[in-house]
């Protein structure tokens, strides 16, 4: 960006072309229901962890889909896998598997931090 003589502060935008969506791909290959989320926010509203922190599974999922992985890497650990989100999801997203796979993916691709 800097080379072109102007700058947009990096935190402002999703650089969709530069971002790598390998984590999201890893998950949706193994858990296709990851793709059907409609961002209703049910999961994060009922979330046990969300009671204590700003953890939002809905947000983490969309961030992974956009390749904004770094915020997810640290936060995905906070999930307690209690399963309330799976129970309330109107789309039948298998959220517990999504979280488990995301954790796996982040362990598998530690170097891919953008």
């Amino acid at each position: 960006m800097d080379r072109f003589g102007f700058s947009i502060s990096k935190g402002r935008q999703i650089d969709y072309d530069a971002n790598s969506r390998h984590i999201a791909e890893f998950i949706s290959e193994r858990e296709p229901s990851f793709r059907v989320c409609i961002e209703c926010g049910c999961c994060s509203a009922t979330c046990t962890t969300g009671n204590f922190t700003s953890f939002s599974l809905r947000e983490l999922q969309i961030l992974m889909k956009r390749g904004e992985n770094e915020k997810v890497r640290e936060n995905i650990k906070k999930c307690m896998l209690c399963g309330k989100c799976t129970l309330v999801c109107p789309r039948g997203v298998n959220t517990r598997n999504v979280v488990t796979l995301a954790r796996q993916a982040f362990q598998k691709f530690p170097a891919n931090a953008v």
Binding site: T48, N51, L81, C82, T100
Partner: peptide
């Protein structure tokens, strides 16, 4: 009553 912390069993079932 206001929502607690998970008991831990779901994590155990996931091998964690």
């Amino acid at each position: 009553e206001m929502g607690g912390v998970c008991c831990g069993r779901p994590l155990m079932l996931a091998g964690q």
